[in-house]
Amino acid sequence: MKRELGISIYPDHSDPQADQSYLKKAAKLGYTRLFISMLEVNNKTKVSQKFSEIIGYAKKLGFEVILDIAPTIFDKLGISYDDLSFFAKLGADGIRLDEGFDGSKEAMLSYNPEGLALELNMSNDVAYLDNILSYEANKPFIYGCHNFYPQAGSALPYDFFVSCSQRFKRQGIKTAAFVTSQKAKIGPWDINDGLPTLEMHRHLSLELQARHLFATGLIDTVIIGNAYASDEELAQLATSERYKLSLGIEFVSNATELERKIVADPMHFRRGDITANAVRSTQVRVKYANAANPPHDNRQEFQVGDVVIGNDDFGKYKNELQIILEPHQDPRKNLVGKILPEELMLLDFVKPWTKFSFVLKN
């Protein structure tokens, strides 16, 4: 399934012109999913006008629009779950169901004549999805999306996130999760300590959060939960790898031009016959077999996350790149850089044959 990026807006708390500007910036960078929160309903006519305008603008820019609806809104609008035409007339492509039914109801709703997708809450480790699918739901119109968590300390722990996500992924359901901007201030509530799905992401850079979610292989769509992410954040996330694992590296001061070139190679992959000692990328040693590489920074004990390259004393292994997984010494290897500390978690995803590249930080 293709991977995509999304943003969120909150028309009940934001300025329409600012929303449009944000949408335009994101669309130009390749963002394609829009999460819109509908929180307040005072007048059905005014609500229709406000949301149809912003949704219409987003659709012209190519966004798929999912509308997040509080259950109380149905009563306030005088509509029922059996008739979703109001949301289709607004231009939405789908609605997020915060209120669960008996499984049979959701399955029936997935055949709504308007063709709206039904987005289910992924952040509960129960057989909710299996129950719905057992009633022969219209599977292509069922999406899954995790919650976001405005209160610091309240988001999901990683292992629980994995367990919840696997329930949807093994059924082939399109999945989504939220990351949080470190610059954005707007969310749905008066508490906004960021809007991530995973607690471990709350204070990380936006693009690292996304790279981590994509690396799990469990999430198809990464959505920025809060608004508005900065121009720099939007651009960095838009250019980050979605399909290939990428690792942030800081070079040591003595790293040579050759070593920088080897690190920057766009297609490293871990050998299939792995070792516990290090991740070995061996094709670069073939590519640069005739290039001299004098020893430097080669006498210390290498630590987990160090990136080393074989020097001239390493025979046929000269210019092989390795990422250290177990501390050891070997003067035939030059230290050329270090994986950033906050990115060491990504080493868990370097499996046999995993393709990877580096994000150069200096």
Rank of each mutant, 00 (worst) to 15 (best):
A264F: 04
D297N: 15
P295D: 09
R260K: 15
R271D: 03
P295V: 11
V284Y: 05
G272L: 02
N290E: 14
D265R: 10
V279E: 07
A278C: 10
S281A: 15
V286E: 05
H296W: 02
R285H: 06
S281M: 05
R260I: 01
A291L: 10
D273L: 14
Q300D: 15
E301D: 11
R271Q: 07
G272M: 00
A292L: 10
N277E: 13
E301Y: 10
A291C: 14
V304G: 12
M267H: 15
Q300M: 15
P294R: 05
V279G: 11
H268W: 01
K261S: 14
D273S: 14
I262S: 02
A291G: 07
M267L: 14
V263T: 11
R270H: 10
K261G: 05
I274P: 01
P266N: 10
A291N: 14
R270N: 12
N290I: 02
Y288W: 01
K261P: 02
I262W: 01
P266L: 09
M267W: 11
S281V: 03
G272A: 01
D273P: 07
Q303W: 06
T282S: 11
A291R: 13
Y288L: 00
P294I: 03
Q283E: 13
E259K: 10
N293Y: 05
T275L: 15
Q283C: 08
R270T: 00
R285I: 00
V284W: 03
Q300V: 13
A276L: 12
Q283N: 13
V286M: 05
Q300T: 11
N293Q: 04
S281N: 06
T282I: 09
R260A: 02
A276N: 14
P266A: 11
R260S: 02
I262H: 01
D273C: 09
T275A: 15
V286A: 08
A292Y: 09
I262E: 02
K287S: 04
D273N: 15
F269H: 10
F302D: 10
Q300E: 15
Q303N: 08
F302K: 03
A292N: 08
V279L: 10
N298K: 00
P294E: 01
Y288S: 02
N290T: 09
T275I: 11
R285S: 12
Q283M: 13
K287G: 02
F302I: 06
N277R: 12
H296L: 03
E301T: 14
E259V: 09
D297K: 03
R280Q: 14
N277L: 13
N290P: 04
H296G: 04
D265S: 15
I262V: 01
A278T: 08
F269W: 09
H268K: 02
M267Y: 14
V304T: 13
P266T: 05
A292Q: 11
P294W: 03
N290A: 13
P295M: 09
G272Y: 04
P294T: 04
V284P: 09
K287Y: 07
F269L: 08
K261I: 05
V286L: 08
V284E: 13
D265W: 15
F269S: 09
